[in-house]
Amino acid sequence: MNIMSEAAVEKALEQKMSDAHFKMVGKDVSVYYGEKRALFDVNLNVRKNTVTALIGPSGCGKSTFLRTLNRMNDTIEGCRVTGSITLDNADVYDQSVDVVELRARVGMVFQKPNPFPKSIYENIAYGPRIHGLARTKADFDEVVENSLQKAGLFNEVKDRLHEPGTGLSGGQQQRLCIARAIAVGPEVILMDEPCSALDPIATAKVEELIHELRTNFTIVIVTHSMQQAARVSQRTAMFHLGNLVEENDTDKMFTNP
């Protein structure tokens, strides 16, 4: 009879708990741009249905780490990633992984709002169309309305769905980009300083939206603003010179670092 040692049992229990709580796990993640090393052996777990804020000075590696989570660094020539990153315990850098499918599961919202030069409706319908998630006009109508509702934008744009998305205000454009990311049914949403180009009122609306979205999505946000990290996140990770300095509950990080 094979009796597991106490240490093995404890390790298995720990693994089970981590599997239950963590959506993405980064182990010894290093990133190189050519000869230059931008990240040094970062270990960071992203919890399910939680907002994790990545903070630190400019050039410290927080956006670089964010981009490893959905392999956006693949688009940069000479970029190399070592270590492992898993999504639901599956390695996202495995050769069998379809990167397009990965980016549908791990969506991204960029610093500057970047709506497509199409109508508001087509901005949302584009992703579901190329992924084959909707087929009939009724399906697309439902996806568009649901996504805009979740992004808190539907009531503001419902009468002009066929007007260009680029005609919206900056804050509305950013919420349109969030709705576009939601439309393909992601599990994780990455946000790279989503409010840096917005005024305080638009920023408040996006922050309120982030708070609402975490019931259905796991969110990782890069921000320069300590106040924003304190307002929107439950976990905070501090980066400095390519190293992860500390990661903890947000309230602990800001009261007893």
Rank of each mutant, 00 (worst) to 15 (best):
K118S: 11
R180M: 12
N114I: 13
A204H: 03
E246V: 09
K118R: 14
A125G: 02
D141Y: 05
V92Q: 03
T50F: 05
V106K: 01
A12T: 11
A38I: 09
M226S: 10
E193V: 00
L39H: 02
A125F: 03
R105P: 02
L198N: 09
S96W: 13
Y121C: 07
N146D: 03
L44A: 08
M191N: 11
V109E: 10
Y32L: 11
S147Q: 03
L168I: 13
V51T: 09
N45G: 15
D98V: 07
K11C: 07
V143M: 04
R180D: 14
E101F: 10
V109H: 12
G242C: 08
S169I: 08
T86V: 08
T250Q: 07
P128C: 00
S58W: 15
Y33W: 05
M253V: 14
S84R: 04
G127E: 00
F65G: 03
E163K: 14
Y121Q: 07
L66R: 08
S233R: 04
N256K: 14
G83D: 01
P257Q: 01
R80L: 06
A53P: 15
L244I: 07
V97Y: 10
N89L: 09
L209V: 03
E142R: 15
V232K: 02
N73A: 00
Q174G: 14
K16N: 07
K150H: 05
V220W: 12
A7R: 14
K48L: 11
M191Y: 10
E156G: 04
A237V: 11
L198D: 12
N216R: 01
F22V: 15
R80N: 02
Q234V: 01
G185W: 00
K158W: 05
D199R: 01
T75V: 13
L198F: 08
G56N: 10
Q111A: 09
L44K: 11
G242I: 11
P115Q: 09
G171F: 12
D91M: 01
S63F: 09
D251N: 13
D19G: 03
E247I: 13
V9I: 15
F22M: 14
A90E: 15
D28E: 12
G34F: 00
N73H: 06
M4F: 13
E14F: 13
M191T: 08
N123P: 02
V92Y: 01
E122T: 10
Q149I: 09
T218K: 00
G34H: 00
R129H: 13
M17A: 14
F239D: 10
T223L: 11
Y32N: 04
D41P: 05
A197C: 08
I182T: 00
E101M: 11
L198V: 02
V245R: 13
D192Q: 04
E193M: 05
V92K: 01
V29D: 06
T166L: 15
I85E: 00
M253K: 09
T52N: 11
A138T: 09
E212M: 08
I182K: 00
T64D: 04
G61C: 08
V245H: 11
L66S: 10
L161H: 02
F40M: 06
V184C: 12
E77F: 02
P194K: 08
M238V: 15
V245K: 13
G165W: 14
L102Y: 03
N2Y: 15
L168A: 11
Y32H: 08
T223P: 10
R80Y: 01
M72H: 03
L66E: 14
H162Q: 10
E246I: 06
A151F: 05
L54H: 05
K205N: 14
